[in-house]
Design a protein around this nucleic acid. Structure first.
Lengths: 122, 122
DNA sequence: CAAATATACATCAGATTCTTATGTATTGGA
DNA sequence: TCCAATACATAAGAATCTGATGTATATTTG
């Protein structure tokens, strides 16, 4: 299943996505146990009908930072001769995920009020 | 009227507010015809129950940039001996406001979907 | 009435984080 | 055999925020 609504040609200005990258990564890892970087970019692109396109230059440094903070753990595997680095949530990562998602949910409510937006999704 | 919900002690991490500053400024000016910088910080703080606290170091440069882009116009007034700089939306600013708000509304829907999904993809 | 706080503008060094390449290498398809 | 896709990574420059500092007037409080 992917996200669907009427406006198909919208791509968000990059500044909008700022501040949500880590939350998106954490949420995907919560649902999928383990994923690798390239897979995350493709999944997000697919799930959002190309609205959110994570660039590798933003993604990889973020993943490295989350790993350095003890939020993510990694396993490296070889698919043929090509390396693939899987990321998973550590216990710290699991609690951070909950915090981040609830913070964002609260933020959305505040912004919805502030911008006087009528949402079309229940 | 101000925003109200159960969690009263939440202050959003700064990175969340990034990318929404200009949209917030534009929306307030749309509703209030003209406002000055300090007034904007106070109004946002008040409307969001202290959740969003705009810093002057972020606000003033943003206002200057919007003015330089022809989005905002200014009038300077003196209240006693103290200067006050009022900002208003230009015609360009009015259309930008609509764009920014609808973009954010769409973004919220996408994020709501993205952060709620259960991906049990085979 | 003196001191502290609030009002009101502004700038800037440093930090963070994103964009946009560039780089390396393997794999699959036309 | 190329070209696109897969898959990692880094890095210069750009953009923007934080937190401090600066200046000045107005108001409140002890």
């Amino acid at each position: 299943m992917r996200y669907d609504n009427t406006i198909y040609d919208m791509i968000y200005s990059s500044e909008l996505i700022k501040g949500t990258l880590k939350t998106i990564i954490l949420k995907l890892l919560k649902d999928n146990k383990r994923m690798y970087g390239y897979e995350i970019t493709q999944r997000v692109k697919e799930l959002t009908n190309d609205r959110i396109q994570l660039t590798e230059g933003a993604l990889y440094p973020s993943l490295h930072a989350l790993e350095a903070d003890g939020v993510l753990t990694t396993e490296t595997e070889y698919i043929g001769k090509r390396v693939r680095k899987y990321y998973s949530l550590s216990p710290k990562g699991k609690s951070l995920t909950k915090e981040k998602i609830s913070e964002f949910a609260d933020f959305m409510n505040t912004m919805k009020f502030l911008l006087d937006i009528k949402t079309d999704i229940a």
